[in-house]
Design a protein around this nucleic acid. Sequence first.
DNA 1: GGTCCTCCTTGACCCAGATCAAGCGCGCGA
DNA 2: TCGCGCGCTTGATCTGGGTCAAGGAGGACC
Lengths: 248, 248
Amino acid sequence: MLQDETLAHNHHCGDCPIRHRAVCARCESTELERLEEIKYYRSFEAGQTVIWSGDKMDFVGSVVSGIATLTQTMEDGRTQMVGLLLPSDFVGRPGREGSAYDVVATTDLVMCCFRKKPFEQMMERTPHIAQRLLEMTLDELDAAREWMLVLGRKTAREKIASLLSIIARRDATLNLQPARGALVFDLPLTREAMADYLGLTLETVSRQISALKRDGVIQLEGKRHVTVPDFSRLMEEAGDDADGGMFA
Amino acid sequence: MLQDETLAHNHHCGDCPIRHRAVCARCESTELERLEEIKYYRSFEAGQTVIWSGDKMDFVGSVVSGIATLTQTMEDGRTQMVGLLLPSDFVGRPGREGSAYDVVATTDLVMCCFRKKPFEQMMERTPHIAQRLLEMTLDELDAAREWMLVLGRKTAREKIASLLSIIARRDATLNLQPARGALVFDLPLTREAMADYLGLTLETVSRQISALKRDGVIQLEGKRHVTVPDFSRLMEEAGDDADGGMFA
DNA sequence: GGTCCTCCTTGACCCAGATCAAGCGCGCGA
DNA sequence: TCGCGCGCTTGATCTGGGTCAAGGAGGACC
């Protein structure tokens, strides 16, 4: 199985693909050894729920591979995605019992988990972890605020363009794409998940994607494979004219 | 002047009204003394801009009294508020040069500022500060995500009720209101600022406030003074049926 | 090869909230 | 005392995106 290979492969933190971006990024080797003692891996299949909102969490951890989403749901069923968790992102909140959100695996997912109590104790003694977690949390806060602008003030077309540009940009930084020219990537989300992210209906998402395709802003192969011939054009459509953001 | 009184009054951290809620909440007296060396107060009048988005920030700090807002603006003028800063809230981001948002004083405002460099150095040596800042940042992230649900999925009426319930709740915790019965408070925001917070127009804000008044959910005296006769009714209107949140 | 099923697209219609416009009331400065 | 401006309200109309509804396309399993 792929999962077993992954587990075997990441058994030592030194080999870990997210070693330099996750909570443990600043740890020294002695600190890593201490982390190894309290860590374990968990795998989830696409579609599986990692934690339900309100459930007690006895671990925190990092996404090693795959994608998960953080969603909030109202009693009547309306849902809003409030976070998209990519490899190296942190899940869970030290110092809190239950989860505030549903965490769902959108693709097959591998997580590196730490039992919560020992992790919290370790955080107190290891400033490198707390510092890195603060930095990551501040980045997430910035991303959340960026998203508030998207949700509150952008049109449906701009919302879709914003989401595409975020995915494209991230994909480019992970996979080291050619600096200029066409960007190519796969959408990791269904139309419904995109709608939940953007505060739209899935019909509107579908229509706007079709419109962007018709207007030549993007090309589609199948439902998920996207080519962006001109990234700055996409940025314009998103309403973020600061086209320098690409390699920030 | 009121400002001078305030300055004199807060000169020593021991007397500070936000002593136990701000970044310095966990500091011991020796640590406070070190902070006193790098701190200074600044006052702003209602309407004044504290920092422009993109400007270099040479300080970070806490709101001591008054209210400020964090807003993002698009080139064409659309604006979205992304944060509401109340006494004890922290402004600025250690480890970043410029501000990502406009910070504007909505009321007269007093801030306790620290020069950025020394503060950053101190943070490295004083885990109590970094720990508290992490905790505060995680709380802000939760608030931002809560707000994403409001922006993405709630109706105009629910948005207004959500905002009122947040203001009411906060006001109750600050001013120690009677546990049950009517809540009374003043709106610290203009209709336009509320619209910017909620992703609405000011006309819609006005209409929905009138509607809530007509339906007896709130009472109004003047434009700003609000009485909430039944808080759980307001929560229902906000779509958050978890009516236990009052004293969390 | 057929038949589900899930994900997606497209059309027709509707409505919440935006837009455009007029006017009120209160505080402030002359 | 008068006007004038700002914050707010209310009305009339318009429209972007929601809702309802009907298929299409690509797997996976029989």
